[in-house]
């Protein structure tokens, strides 16, 4: 039998107090786009749902001194329609636009997307590539966790039972890009996703780079080997070939109902190339080889 309590938290303080009180029994819901599915499938039951959707303090996109802060309760729609992000974090902007479909985007939140920790979470690779930090609170304390340390495995994160994500924060980087391979143009769980951000010096040498991939490992991953292949270099055919070769060492995909591991291995280097070229302002030739 399905058995739930639902409590709507009016503000962050109340939400933290509820988490503190309910602990293991607590189950945070914002957009509920994952919660509804899990409840129907019987994966979630006998819990107290704490509704944080309407907490104003958790919502909004702020830009100050080169830093972008996005409240955890900000909907994917807000991100997908943000002119600021389109300019200053195109990787995240693109991911939000490729996310599910308009109705889901209106409900789903960025905090919920990363807290659910699906290996296919669409906002995870851009946040990893933008080297974001997750700002986490519990009753009486706050902490910051680098995005690359946030995910532990399938549906597992560093979040404690009494913790709540307040926001994600990262430095603006217009030189970032995202690419998704899905099996259709909307409402498609990713087959492979990639995101990259770069900084270059005046000679065009890459001085800083982060590349991340989704749906190719138990959690969204940084592609450290691929990054190493391009760091300190100018992009040319040889470097791109090295980059593509290096991707294999960064991923451990599996066969599932959407695609085979082999396909993911074939496609991941291609889309890493594309996001990196796009980040560097080089025509990525998205259509193919010719």
């Amino acid at each position: 039998m399905k058995n739930f309590e639902f409590i709507k938290a009016p503000d962050v303080k109340a939400a933290l107090a509820l988490l503190d009180k309910e602990k293991d029994h607590a189950y945070l819901v914002a957009g509920s786009t994952n919660a509804m599915v899990d409840i129907r499938a019987g994966k979630v039951n006998d819990r107290t749902l704490i509704g944080i959707r309407d907490i104003d303090a958790l919502s909004g996109i702020k830009f100050s001194r080169g830093k972008i802060t996005i409240g955890a309760g900000t909907t994917i729609s807000e991100i997908a329609n943000s002119a600021l992000l389109a300019k200053k974090a195109p990787a995240l902007f693109q991911a939000a636009n490729d996310f599910a479909d308009p109705t889901t985007r209106n409900s789903a939140t960025i905090g919920g997307n990363i807290a659910n920790a699906s290996p296919a979470a669409d906002t995870a690779p851009p946040l990893l590539a933008l080297k974001a930090e997750v700002i986490i609170a519990k009753k009486g304390s706050k902490r910051r966790v680098p995005m690359e340390d946030f995910f532990l495995g399938v549906n597992k994160t560093v979040l404690e039972k009494d913790e709540l994500i307040l926001a994600v924060e990262f430095s603006a980087n217009p030189h970032s890009a995202f690419y998704k391979v899905g099996l259709r143009n909307a409402m498609a769980i990713s087959v492979v996703t990639a995101a990259a951000s770069v900084r270059k010096d005046r000679d065009g040498k890459i001085t800083d780079v982060a590349i991340a991939l989704g749906s190719v490992a138990p959690k969204p991953v940084r592609a450290y080997n691929a990054e190493k292949a391009v760091l300190g270099k100018k992009l040319d055919d040889k470097v791109i070939a090295d980059l593509m070769k290096a991707v294999a060492k960064d991923i451990s995909p599996i066969d599932d109902v959407r695609a085979s591991a082999e396909y993911r291995k074939d496609v991941a280097p291609v889309i890493v190339k594309r996001v990196l070229c796009k980040s560097c302002g080089i025509c990525a030739n998205e259509g193919g080889t010719k």
Binding site: A186, M187, R258
Partner: peptide, 10 residues
């Protein structure tokens, strides 16, 4: 979510 029929944009 697994049996993928074309959506409006497909």
């Amino acid at each position: 979510s697994t049996y993928l029929i074309p959506t409006a944009v497909d």
